[in-house]
Design a binder for these strands. Structure first.
Lengths: 395, 395
DNA sequence: CGACGTAAGTTGTATGACAAAACTAATCCC
DNA sequence: GGGATTAGTTTTGTCATACAACTTACGTCG
């Protein structure tokens, strides 16, 4: 709740203009931005000039496909390409990833490695990740500034301290990754975050400053366990300490099977990757895609497994929907691979157990399958800071 | 995301100054406000003068107990008394209430009526409430402006439309209360809200602009059923449609007893007022205070009832805490009356089932017993709008 | 009791961000 | 080629805050 001065005015309107341009579907002119923001054309002109000079926006020269309207032709504006970028990293249980994403949302460079990291030791893993990061950063185009880095981790993270407190599926406890990566990152600030939170951010924002519908949803990230995030109005809800979203350990049945977390009947024990494959009679290393194939081919045991997982998801999610009034659920990770099998069961139970279902029908959406959405989200989050406070980045 | 102009600057800083004065524990001087907001003394002076002229702030004349410091004595500032007020109304299952609250948080007038309204008809009840409202408004002191009215209702409310969609415990469906109350309210805008949301607001803010710790909590309102609200950073989270907080229908056990809502094993069936009294072998009309007395005196059945309710609360709340990372629970209504009996059981289960309990111990807080906290919350919410946008109310 | 120090609050001037309106630029249409 | 139309720029005005000097009102101490 800081006070406002004239400078704040300019900061806020600069951010507003930047966001308006990035959020637009087609490159808008200065006049379009003025109309959309209800600022005057003169003010927008001044702000846009600053953003263009700062490398945040680009003027599109080509007016080739001009619409043939009367009047002076517009100068379309869009996010600059390959001039401002951020590095996104991810350590998953099954893969390592590094991505360089620019302000337009384009992936400038990428490295992906699959590896079984369950029970791994942090040191060697971070060294491998460092190598990926270096390779990706080496591919930075000329004239492109890397403005930040983020790391997605599958566990409970202390964002302020940049520390991973606990990642049971990796077997890591109390790890601070920044020092191990410093050789690759140099001065670049590293922001550590929960994988599901960052994947949810990437789902809500296909590119920096750009929003996708729905703006409010619950995101479920099926890795080995089940991570989750709550997204309200396009923003990931962090919670009091940044640990919100642990949907995997919501109780489905207090008398259910014991969970690694020390509790009983957690959702993860019904719809986690291992639980799902086990119930289908498949080896833990099988891909959930294979499970989906079998279920679609009529394998009764596979179908029973997805039905049971769907029921558990429905029960757990209905409680969350009742409490939060966010009737849209996005399935990501392995849950996306079997999403079409789970969705009907989940929607049926939500319709029955959600108090407000009479007025708004809860629905399930299936995310695209991406091995490392957390890396994208981490990069986008760093870029979002450029958009929301452009002044800090106008050299 | 509107644009900012110079006027916005003044609006925002006016609100900032008002809020700073209201939030202070002891009446601050202009200089204190300047120090707290990092605005200059001259700017604060101008803004304070406007707020004093507008009847929002008062200068305290008495410097009797002056601290005897050197320098010119300060002119302490505080919220104006009995000059700006709002009307809070509540329809509960067991009572009707009307309260007039001023900017300092003082109750200027109040009417409370106990009545069994389960299965009542809206028309007659609203007429009785109208009478209460008229009596309370008639008691408005001279020179006091009533700036808004709010109505707390125990059910699902469409805030935008001012409509109660469904209140199963009253037996009301699809009721729009404003017309029935218009004769009492005159031009006064009526804002309808959920009882638990408004009670939670009242808990978070003992007076307009004033905050109480904790700033993040889950509020449980024990009426006949169990309502709830999620409070983040002092603000009640409304959810996508304003229906957030229905903790009463979170599933404790999918194989549990059927609930009025059409589902099974809802929390309300274990810890609702009727369920609690039934389990203790008491008549439904018994006060929960009587149940608490018996349990404290060693009545085994009463103890078993509270233990079982505590277990159910623990299971339901642990899921919510895992998802939201809000490790503080406030018990209100009948749950406050038996709060000391429930708390140990609930805290024990939260400690076991909440994933982050290792780092931050979840705790249970017991609210003061008030027959109509929703009425207070409704009035405070209307007054909050004066504080956050003083310009609209400066004549 | 009067000069001095100190802190609160006021007054006057400067700065700078946006609004308004006039102006220039570039294109289409006739 | 001229008028209509729309994009973008320049100029001038307004207004809220910063800054600094000033006034007010009190305590303190010789």
């Amino acid at each position: 709740m800081a006070n406002l001065r004239q400078a704040s005015l300019r900061h806020a309107n600069l951010a507003l203009v930047a966001r308006t341009v990035l959020a637009a579907d087609t490159p808008p002119s200065r006049a379009d931005v003025a109309a959309a923001t209800s600022l005057t054309r003169s003010t927008v002109s001044r702000l846009v000039d600053e953003l263009v000079a700062g490398g945040i926006l680009d003027e599109v020269e080509s007016v080739v496909g001009g619409p043939g309207r009367p009047g002076r032709p517009a100068t379309p504006l869009r996010a600059s390409r390959a001039r401002v970028a951020a590095l996104g990293l991810q350590v998953g249980v099954g893969q390592l990833a590094a991505r360089l994403v620019d302000l337009s949302g384009a992936v400038l460079a990428e490295r992906l490695v699959t590896a079984d990291l369950a029970g791994s030791r942090p040191g060697p893993v971070l060294r491998r990740l460092r190598t990926l990061a270096t390779r990706v950063l080496d591919a930075t185009p000329d004239g492109c500034r890397v403005v930040g880095a983020g790391l997605a981790l599958p566990g409970i993270v202390d964002v302020a301290a940049g520390r991973l407190l606990s990642a049971p599926n990796l077997g890591w406890e109390d790890v601070t990754p920044a020092p191990g990566l410093a050789a690759a990152l140099g001065d670049l600030a590293l922001r550590v975050g929960n994988e599901a939170d960052l994947a949810a951010h990437a789902y809500a924002h296909p590119a920096p400053g750009r929003d996708r519908e729905p703006r409010d949803f619950l995101y479920l990230s099926g890795e080995v366990g089940i991570g989750g995030a709550v997204v309200v109005d396009g923003e990931v809800m962090a919670g009091r300490h940044g640990w919100a979203g642990e949907i995997g350990h919501v109780c489905v049945d207090p008398d259910g099977p014991p969970c690694r977390c020390g509790s009983t009947g957690c959702l993860e024990q019904y719809a986690g990757r291992l639980a799902l494959l086990d119930a289908a009679g498949l080896d833990p290393s099988t891909s959930p895609a294979e499970l989906a194939r079998r279920a679609r081919d009529g394998d009764e045991q596979a179908r029973a497994a997805t039905r049971s997982a769907g029921r558990a998801l429905g029960v757990a999610l209905s409680g969350v929907v009742n409490v939060l009034d966010i009737p849209t659920v996005v399935l990501g990770g392995h849950l996306a691979m079997v999403g079409d099998l789970l969705a009907p069961e989940v929607e049926e139970i939500l319709g029955r157990r959600v108090l407000s279902a009479r007025w708004v029908t809860p629905r399930v959406v299936i995310a695209d399958v991406d091995p490392a959405p957390g890396a994208t989200g981490a990069a986008l989050l760093a870029l979002d800071r450029v958009v929301s406070d452009p002044v800090a980045h106008l050299s």
